[in-house]
């Protein structure tokens, strides 16, 4: 069986609970080490540069509206029922817009998983809350479990 490559991208920023995706990337980096392709991104559009040659994409981002703060979700893309707002300009290319573009360009791998960590409002300079930090820890364990369930992931296979 040919080796498969999985890319994990943590989306977010340095501000408060919006750093959930980055924290997940950092924690995964410590657990999986150099054998995984793990990246942080501040803007979803960065994904487009990294999709070449991968077979599976895993994303973790902060989200709102699907549960209480500190809860988390795992979705297979496309997410049923998710509202996909059209981008108004190039300053607000959200994840759904980037994913639709990637799909139309034939760049999306056959399996895309998205982990969402519910957060509340974020203000510049905020610190990460304990509940979101705990949720990210659980998400990382879930990702590692999924990685184990995947038939092959980089040199871990």
């Amino acid at each position: 069986m040919a080796k498969q490559t999985t890319l994990f991208v943590g989306l977010g920023s340095s501000h408060g609970d919006d750093c959930a995706g980055w924290l997940a990337a950092d924690l995964l980096g410590r657990r999986i080490g150099q054998h995984a392709v793990i990246r942080r991104a501040a803007a979803p559009i960065d994904l487009l540069d990294w999709l070449g040659g991968i077979d599976r994409l895993a994303i973790c981002d902060a989200c709102q509206g699907a549960g209480p703060a500190g809860s988390w979700h795992r979705w297979a893309w496309p997410i049923p029922g998710a509202v996909q707002l059209p981008p108004r300009g190039s300053h607000d290319w959200g994840l759904s817009a980037v994913m639709r573009l990637a799909a139309n360009l034939g760049l999306l791998p056959h399996e895309v998983l998205v982990w969402g960590v519910e957060i509340t409002a974020v203000h510049p300079g905020d610190k990460l809350s304990a509940q979101v930090s705990a949720a990210v820890g659980a998400v990382v364990e879930d990702i590692l479990t999924r990685v184990g369930a995947m038939p092959c992931m980089n040199d871990l296979c």
């Binding site: 059209p86 981008p87 300009g89 190039s90 817009a97 639709r100 573009l101 139309n104 360009l105 034939g106």
Partner: peptide, 25 residues
């Protein structure tokens, strides 16, 4: 992403990409 869709009849560059992937790439 912002201008060419006007000339080619698309609402956005995302829709345009399905028919003009080479140009968008």
């Amino acid at each position: 992403f912002l201008h060419a869709p006007d000339f080619l009849g698309y609402d956005s560059g995302i829709e345009m990409a399905a028919d003009h992937p080479r140009e968008v790439h």
